[in-house]
Design a protein around this nucleic acid. Structure first.
Lengths: 187, 187
DNA sequence: CAATGCTTTTGATCTAAATCAAAAAGTAAC
DNA sequence: GTTACTTTTTGATTTAGATCAAAAGCATTG
């Protein structure tokens, strides 16, 4: 979903504000496999995915572990870097031909401060981020591999078809072999 | 830390604003063991802990599992209820004699909307909430029981001394027995 | 200081999922 | 088609941590 369209769903956008948004958020077309950020980055950029999917990942003991999937219509930011000025362990990889919009966080903050409506929207986006983390934490801490797989199938059926098995497995916190067995019903 | 003191650390507070805050946030003194919210609540209240500790917990298969500790100087809100109007599975229990301040979320939101400075502060609080979840998710997903115990010792040494072992164990996502063994170095 | 009721530790056994290794199935390129 | 390469599945074995059960510590109260 186009950024402007997303914004209009939530707030009233004046023509000059719309122009400012279009100007401030740079648009980029990226091919599958492109690395937007590498692990241990220091990026202050805020990303909005207009089309496609990207994943954030972490490297632990030489293994690549998916931390989150960011689907079209959502924002992503390197929390550690943008908000806390420290390095972020998470890299970002494009999984399909993807269109993103980017803006440096300081610019975005100044932007938000200028508009009452944007403040409410930014609160909404943050609330959703908190909810997403809270839900995922719940699923990792309280659910078995099987249960996690089932609820992911239910909540994000499309992701399951769009990305390789290995990424889904590490996202669920299990190995690819275990996921394969769960799918085959051999558990 | 008193709420007003906390606010003054971050923003400039006019006398009338201070009066409004004192008025809007009700103060409550609660004894150890008091249940602030029960699991499956529908509370829209926002809590600020001035003194003491509370924990949020979840009941799964008859077992009580600690979801988070809220120390003095931080906020807590039932995300599901306040933000999404749905029941929240998390209960809240007071672990020590505690002083809290509460305000209904809708009131707080109206309050925030009225003051530029509060908007920035609320963003800050939300950012911290996201970071907290993100860190805990990381620790549960990528660290062993031993590693999780070590980093908790490092990050929240005081909590370890203030709350019963069982709560810490379930917070770390392990059993009390395992935690006991880790502490004894028998792993 | 018993007696009662917690909390923590210790021990023995079990299990979900990881690891290691290799086969099978897909996909693309020639 | 054959070859090369990637992704997924299957099988055997290991392991971190859970579960079950009981003992040991520690407070509190009469």
């Amino acid at each position: 979903m186009e950024l402007i369209h997303f914004l209009k769903q939530h707030i009233l956008l004046s023509p000059e504000m719309e122009a400012q948004v279009q100007e401030a958020f740079r648009r980029e077309e990226l091919p599958r496999g492109h690395r937007l950020l590498s692990p241990d980055n220091f990026s202050q950029k805020v990303f909005y995915v207009e089309k496609g999917v990207v994943r954030t990942y972490y490297v632990k003991d030489g293994k690549d572990i998916t931390h989150s999937f960011v689907l079209e219509g959502s924002f992503f930011v390197s929390i550690e870097s943008a908000f806390f000025n420290s390095p972020s362990p998470y890299g970002v990889e494009v999984l399909e031909q993807t269109t993103i919009r980017t803006i440096p966080y300081p610019d975005l903050e100044r932007f938000i401060d200028g508009y009452q409506a944007l403040q409410k929207l930014s609160r909404l986006v943050m609330i959703n981020a908190v909810k997403t983390f809270s839900d995922k934490l719940y699923s990792i801490q309280f659910q078995s591999a099987q249960e996690r797989y089932n609820s992911m199938l239910e909540k994000f059926p499309d992701i399951m078809l769009r990305v390789p098995l290995g990424h889904i497995a590490s996202y669920l916190g299990i190995t690819q072999e275990t996921l394969s067995r769960i799918r085959a019903g051999k558990v």
